[in-house]
Simulated assay, not measured.
Amino acid sequence: MSGKSKYPEQFRKDAVALARSSDRPLRQVARELGVNHETLRNWVRTAEQAQAAPPAGGVSPEERQELRALRKRVAELELEKDILRKAAAYFAQEMGR
């Protein structure tokens, strides 16, 4: 659902969700939304294709962002673990004296 459109992206997503969840005919849903039924049909088709096809590179932008955040968190945790290991060794040495 990309490209130049007079309809905002969120409106198109909501319209597709409504069309999928409604038991009313697509034509009726489109009429109620004030959209041409072929336009709505195209939005639904595009959404279905996007959902069925894996994202380019295998990772969506949301997943890529989450992956960056997780890698950052892993680096922080590894640093904390190293600090704690050194502190434990230090205190073990101090207790042994």
Rank of each mutant, 00 (worst) to 15 (best):
M1E: 06
M1G: 11
M1H: 13
S2Q: 12
S2T: 14
G3N: 00
K4C: 00
Y7T: 10
P8C: 01
P8S: 12
E9D: 14
Q10C: 04
Q10V: 12
R12F: 04
K13S: 13
K13A: 13
K13Y: 15
D14A: 13
A15W: 03
V16Y: 08
V16H: 07
L18N: 02
L18A: 08
L18E: 14
A19E: 03
R20H: 14
S21G: 15
S22L: 07
D23L: 08
R24D: 15
P25F: 08
P25H: 12
P25S: 11
P25V: 10
L26F: 05
L26V: 04
R27P: 02
R27E: 13
Q28H: 11
R31C: 00
E32V: 01
E32D: 15
L33A: 04
G34I: 00
G34Q: 01
G34C: 00
V35M: 02
N36H: 15
H37I: 00
H37M: 00
T39M: 02
T39G: 01
L40N: 02
L40S: 00
L40T: 03
L40W: 01
R41I: 00
R41S: 13
N42Y: 14
V44L: 07
V44G: 01
R45T: 05
T46S: 12
T46W: 07
T46H: 07
A47Y: 06
A47C: 04
A47M: 04
Q49M: 11
Q49G: 08
A50Q: 11
A50I: 04
A50H: 10
A52Y: 06
A52P: 02
A52C: 03
A52L: 10
A53F: 05
P54R: 10
P54M: 04
P54V: 06
P55F: 06
A56G: 12
G57M: 03
G58S: 14
V59P: 02
E62M: 01
E62N: 04
E63L: 05
R64D: 06
Q65K: 15
Q65T: 11
E66V: 08
R68A: 11
R68W: 05
R68D: 11
A69G: 01
L70I: 06
L70V: 06
R71D: 09
K72V: 00
K72T: 07
K72C: 00
K72H: 12
R73A: 10
R73L: 10
A75N: 09
A75T: 07
E76L: 09
E76Y: 08
E76F: 05
L77G: 03
E78W: 05
L79W: 03
L79H: 10
K81I: 01
K81Q: 14
I83F: 07
I83M: 08
I83T: 10
L84Q: 15
L84W: 15
A87Y: 09
A87N: 13
A87H: 10
A88D: 14
A88S: 14
A92Y: 12
A92C: 09
Q93S: 06
Q93I: 00
Q93N: 05
E94P: 02
G96N: 09
R97L: 07
R97E: 11
R97G: 06
